[in-house]
C-alpha cells in the first residue's frame, strides 16, 4: 500500500491530543480519593469512574478511569484539566457543552459519549460531601426545570430513573404528571429519560 497524505481526522486536533495522551489517569492503585463516583456501564459501551481530593473547598487532584471511545476518553481528560483548581461549586456546574467547546467540538452523533465525565465528577463531589457529613448545597442549584406546569426538574427525573422508581415513560408520567397540562415538555422529558436510562444502565 502506498502512503498518502493523511486526510482530516474525524475529531479535532485537541481531541486527538487528549485521546493519545490522556491527562490525570487513575492508573495508580494507591490513589486515595476523598470522594469517588462511577456512572455508565460496560454494557452500554461507556463507563466512567472519577476520584477527587479536596483542599480548602477546591478540587486538589482528580483522577479518572474509563471504558469508552475516543470522545469519552478525550472529554474526560479535558474535564479533568478544567476541574482541577476549581471550587466545588464551579466544578459541580461544569457542563458537557463547556467541555466539548474546549475540545473544539465533537461530531453531533458523538456528543452523547461526552456526557459521562461531568456526571461522574458530580457523583464524586456528592460522595465527598457525604463522607464528610457536609450538606450538599449544589445538588439543588444545578437542577433545571423541565416541566414548568408541574415544576419537575431534570434532577427529579434523574433520581427516579436512577433509583428504578420509573422504569418506563408511563411510570414516570404516573409519578410526576409531567406533560399533562400544556404538554410542551414531553419530547424533552423523553430525551432525558432515555439519556438517564443509558447513563445508569436501567
Amino acid at each position: 500500500m502506498s502512503t498518502q497524505n493523511s486526510p482530516a481526522w474525524v475529531y479535532t486536533d485537541t481531541v486527538k491530543d487528549h485521546f493519545m495522551n490522556p491527562k490525570n489517569l487513575w492508573t495508580d492503585d494507591s490513589y486515595q480519593p476523598d470522594g469517588e463516583g462511577m456512572v455508565g456501564s460496560m454494557a452500554c459501551g461507556d463507563q466512567m469512574r472519577v476520584g477527587i481530593t479536596v483542599k480548602d473547598d477546591r478540587i486538589e487532584t482528580l483522577k479518572w478511569q474509563t471504558y469508552g471511545c475516543a470522545s469519552a476518553i478525550a472529554s474526560t481528560s479535558m474535564m479533568s484539566e478544567m476541574a482541577i483548581g476549581m471550587t466545588l461549586k464551579e466544578a459541580y456546574n461544569l457542563t458537557p457543552e463547556s467541555i466539548t467547546d474546549h475540545l473544539g467540538g465533537l461530531p453531533q452523533h458523538k456528543f452523547h459519549c461526552s456526557v459521562l465525565g461531568d456526571k461522574a465528577l458530580r457523583a464524586a463531589i456528592d460522595n465527598y460531601l457525604e463522607r464528610q457529613d457536609k450538606p450538599n448545597p449544589y445538588k439543588a442549584s444545578v437542577a433545571k426545570i423541565i416541566c414548568e406546569c408541574k415544576g419537575i426538574t431534570d434532577q427529579r427525573i434523574e433520581e427516579l430513573v436512577k433509583n428504578k422508581e420509573a422504569t418506563t415513560l408511563d411510570e414516570l408520567r404516573d409519578i410526576t404528571q409531567f406533560g399533562t397540562v400544556c404538554g410542551k415538555c414531553r419530547f424533552k422529558v423523553q430525551q432525558l429519560f432515555d439519556e438517564y436510562k443509558h447513563i445508569y444502565n436501567v
Partner: peptide, 29 residues
C-alpha cells in the same frame, strides 16, 4: 475491557485499518 472505537483509532495511528462492531463507531447506542 477495551472499547472497539478506541482500539480502531489507536491502530489507525499506527497505520493499521480495521473495523469494529462497537456502537461508538456507528453513532448509534
Amino acid at each position: 475491557q477495551a472499547e472497539g472505537e478506541s482500539i480502531l483509532l489507536y491502530l489507525d495511528f499506527e497505520g493499521i485499518s480495521v473495523s469494529t462492531g462497537s456502537a461508538c463507531a456507528t453513532g448509534s447506542l
